[in-house]
Design a protein around this nucleic acid. Structure first.
Lengths: 132, 132
DNA sequence: GTTTGTGCAAATATTTTGCACTTGA
DNA sequence: TCAAGTGCAAAATATTTGCACAAAC
């Protein structure tokens, strides 16, 4: 769990995330909470999501426009990437040992240290493809 | 070329980019131009870089913090990724056949089609690491 | 002279932060 | 009690846009 105190706000954010499968922005989450009657400051939503992401409790990714999206992740605190369906938003968590080692060797090859990487996939999932 | 008119501003931005090998933000480019005595509005820098990126004249990528970086691209229209030094901006173009095939197989494995991917690396290069 | 480009300042959009107040343990 | 958490409003960041003016062709 994030922080040490159980508050109404954190409980509500956690519960909302549990009911959502897909990625949502902090702003959307704030709005959804308001619709449920949970009056929580936007700053608190940002702070909580940020802390959860740091703790590996939620996945976060950035859209092409620089907005952060969050969702409850299936495998907490494991480094992984996402394959997101462009049309329905369905998300598959991708995690390859080959991938990570390849990525690490590419960095090492060029003498870089403290290397972080961002990798996201956007495509069309099977059901959306056949629906066409 | 971008647009139809050759202006002092566009010429200066193009010339600056030719002299830079690495990724720079619009803000940095604006500052560098000012240092060269080129007084160009920040909005113009953004407009010009945006148009150049759309036209494929420059590469652009986003940092983890949502900032856009630009540079004159070495190999226009070749698929590749970037390993960028966080502190000096030095950039290595990364292009691995292993990488691409691995990426393709991951997508196929989950039944996704039309898959695009974004992959960028940010780290500290050798000279910046030793300078510390 | 007409159309495109530019500068400036204001607007957007997203996220972060300072600080006084509230609350959980 | 009292440190941790919250709300609000302001600040910070990065980028875009409206509009009058300037410049290219």
């Amino acid at each position: 769990m994030i922080g040490q105190r159980v508050t109404r706000q954190r409980t509500a954010i956690g519960a909302l995330l549990d009911g959502l499968g897909d990625f949502r922005s902090a702003q959307q989450i704030h709005t959804l909470l308001a619709e449920r009657g949970e009056d929580i400051g936007l700053a608190t939503v940002y702070r909580t999501l940020g802390a959860m992401a740091t703790a590996g409790e939620v996945d976060s990714l950035r859209t092409g426009t620089g907005e952060s999206l969050f969702r409850r992740c299936a495998r907490p605190s494991t480094h992984h990437h996402h394959l997101v369906c462009r049309s329905c938003g369905r998300t598959v968590e991708v995690q390859g040992p080959n991938l990570e080692s390849l990525v690490r060797s590419i960095a090492a090859e060029h003498g870089f240290t403290d290397v972080e990487h961002t990798l996201e996939f956007f495509g069309t999932c099977q059901s959306c493809a056949s629906a066409r």
